[in-house]
């Protein structure tokens, strides 16, 4: 007598696997309920109680249903449901690269505006001393804190720690980070800047670009040599010639055009916008009709690029 062992019948799970190799355990019909669904405050997201609630959701005390508290798109990771609003302040995660502006110098710390719900803190102990010396910070260092950073200075830093109440602590313990000089500052909505492998770019037009995840962007003169260790905290700008100045201004205005039309901001998009902007003089780039022309050209090119990649 022969037995035949049938392999277990595949259920209606379609086992969609995401980038991290996690298998999606929802039924196909359930999954379709959430795909690109827009919800507004007070709207019921789901009647089912099996889901966990993330940001932007709450449970109605009367009906025990999970409701949305913001207007945005449903983001679902397996059984965790959260709502992602499109316009919102920056909410940090450990390791994020941010650009900030010093707002206050206080006891052993600086307060830094990073477009978040509260100012972040930068402790005196989380900076590198000029000359790269590693030692405990003394009282003498405390007294000359304004020599390192004073109010209004811009800096690029990394999120070191997030606290329960939503505030952050930053650090600049690397030569990549530190005070920003020789450039220009642009603000865009934080949702437009996505996490990438690197946030420091050198554009082909000879401009350095630092994309902060908090929507603050620094466009500066290209320098090949790394900052000499002694000059980390220098406030002096170097000489920038006319050509470089124009390139910086053009990149800045291209970024503003992209952000005005709510398009994603990364080095590729900025370069496309820069190329499209070459037909216009720099000072015209902030005119609404010119922005329209540039962004529509960028979107056309992106669609072509994407189609090319698919082939």
């Amino acid at each position: 007598m022969t037995f035949q062992f049938l392999s277990p019948k595949p259920s209606s799970y379609t086992n969609k696997v995401d980038a991290d190799g996690d298998i999606d355990m929802l039924l196909k019909t359930e999954r379709e309920n959430f795909e690109t669904k827009v919800v507004t405050p007070g709207e019921t997201i789901t009647h089912a109680t099996q889901y966990m609630g993330g940001h932007g959701t709450y449970i109605s005390p009367e009906t025990n249903q999970r409701l949305s508290s913001v207007a945005g798109v449903v983001d679902r990771v397996n059984k965790l449901i959260s709502i992602r609003p499109l316009h919102t302040r920056y909410t940090g995660e450990i390791g994020d690269l941010v650009i900030g502006r010093i707002t206050e110098v206080s006891q052993k710390r600086w307060k830094v505006d990073i477009n978040s719900r509260q100012d972040a803190v930068l402790l005196l102990s989380s900076i590198n001393l000029p000359g790269g010396v590693q030692r405990r910070k003394t009282e003498a260092d405390e007294l000359q804190m304004r020599k390192f950073f004073s109010e209004g200075d811009l800096l690029v830093a990394e999120v070191r720690e997030t606290f329960q109440d939503g505030s952050f602590s930053l650090h600049i313990r690397s030569l990549k980070y530190g005070k920003l000089r020789n450039g220009s500052f642009v603000i865009v909505p934080p949702a437009l800047v996505q996490r990438c492998k690197t946030h420091f770019h050198t554009l082909p037009c000879g401009v350095n670009l630092t994309l902060g995840l908090n929507g603050y962007i620094w466009v500066s003169k290209h320098t090949t040599q790394t900052v000499e260790e002694l000059a980390i905290y220098s406030n002096e700008n170097e000489e920038i010639d006319q050509e470089n100045r124009e390139a910086i201004a053009r990149v800045c205005n291209s970024i503003s055009a992209l952000s005005r039309h709510f398009m994603c901001i990364n080095d590729k998009m900025i370069m496309l916008a820069y190329e499209a902007s070459l037909n216009f003089p720099v000072k015209d780039l902030l005119k609404l009709d010119v922005m329209e022309v540039i962004t529509s050209e960028v979107s056309e090119k992106m669609i072509l690029l994407k189609a090319g990649m698919r082939r």
Binding site: V38, T40, L86
Partner: peptide, 18 residues
């Protein structure tokens, strides 16, 4: 109001998906 909010979100989504 709800209609205006939804239209705005859909518009932004469309733009940012490029």
């Amino acid at each position: 109001l709800d209609k205006a909010v939804r239209e705005n979100i859909k518009d932004l989504l469309k733009k940012s998906s490029i």
